[in-house]
Design a protein around this nucleic acid. Structure first.
Lengths: 202, 202
DNA sequence: TCTATTGGGGAACGATCGTTTCCAAATTAA
DNA sequence: TTAATTTGGAAACGATCGTTCCCCAATAGA
């Protein structure tokens, strides 16, 4: 009888998609930051009443952390897709750097990175936020290192370079690009940084 | 009769040093950020009553901008002194990078950089803040470029490298270090980034 | 049909925000 | 001395903050 056989919990069903609402919240938190983003702004952007917001999330911090996780999920998916197209280690490193450069200019740059924003605004006095930032940074660093080792294995990256140290440098470059992108350098300047960084792999 | 012959303006003299108070405000703004730093916290840290604060400064933003300027003044003086000890262009680039690495770990790292914080939290919707950030970033980039050209002139840096592009990269690295420093990598990791970046000058 | 449960939405809450006001104290100029 | 001016400091202000409450709607299970 029932087309949807998945059991539904009792009570009135939610009328909005959590992930769609979070995508809107991500924009507000990215542009304004955690403290400057008010519940009033968030509920308007998410298209919800305050009461509904607080039924879906415990408090403002929970909205933020859920937004952070959603942001990471979406960005990671795009990056993964980008890396899958790389032809060797060096190309994948280049694609990853360009992925950040693309996000660090123009409107995207102005909007900013939620990881960087969290590191700056929240990590110092909120353990949960700090842990998420650390995990995100750690994964990026590890990914750079993996790609570099792949490049050394396939011959596209020089054997002489130190994968760990170079990965840390590239992580610094990407986070720095995100900061510079906030006051909006043009596209060429962001990509010139990528080109210069790639010379480290020779 | 009067030991201090400098004419004093009418009215009760101020009982505190503006710059000493600003140094305290810099700490609060750096650790907490603009929005999370309340007037209550600021007045406690600065040792002033709210009324006195508002006689010295127009509003919260004026306190912040004055703190920003004080921060830049102090940091620039320290950096200048550091660079004066450099023996050639390459050494001065290295000293400048180490100056940032030193500020990007441990307690200083956790405290954070007021320029980066301003870029992330304020620059998007406050023109005065954005202009200060832009000017600060522009000067750092120009300084890196100058030092690189000096190194090329004195033979300590390879002629083949592009001073402008490399300066932009090094600026990205320093700003990135400041972000990473917020969640506190240890000293060695910060300095390994410097060592790796210096390879770009060979 | 009745009960239990959950969501939607708006009104209301106490707390805290940045700011102003007020009065006493300290100084200069007349 | 007196008037004008400015600071120190505490108290008070309106606005906005994040959050809760309340009432109605919508659903599941009995």
């Amino acid at each position: 009888m029932d087309i949807n056989t998945a059991t539904r919990p009792p009570g009135r069903p939610r009328e909005f998609e959590i992930e769609e609402a979070l995508d809107k919240a991500v924009i507000v938190f990215s542009e304004r930051g955690y403290h400057a983003a008010s519940i009033s702004e968030l509920k308007d952007a998410m298209g919800l009443a305050a009461g509904s917001l607080y039924k879906a999330f415990k408090d403002k911090k929970a909205i933020f952390l859920a937004s952070f996780d959603r942001y990471k999920q979406v960005r990671n998916a795009v990056l993964e897709q980008e890396l899958a197209q790389g032809i060797n280690g060096r190309d994948r490193v280049s694609r990853m750097l360009r992925f950040y450069a693309e996000a660090s200019h123009g409107e995207n740059g102005r909007r900013g990175c939620l990881v960087v924003g969290t590191a700056i605004e929240l990590a110092v006095y909120d353990a949960e936020a700090a842990e998420r930032v650390d995990r995100s940074m750690g994964r990026s660093e590890a990914l750079f290192e993996t790609l570099i080792r792949e490049g050394q294995a396939d011959g596209s990256i020089a054997q002489a370079i130190d994968p760990g140290a170079t990965a840390r440098l590239l992580l610094s470059v990407t986070q720095g690009l995100r900061v510079l992108g906030k006051t909006g350098p043009n596209r060429d300047r962001a990509f010139s940084v990528v080109d210069t960084a790639m010379k480290l792999l020779d």
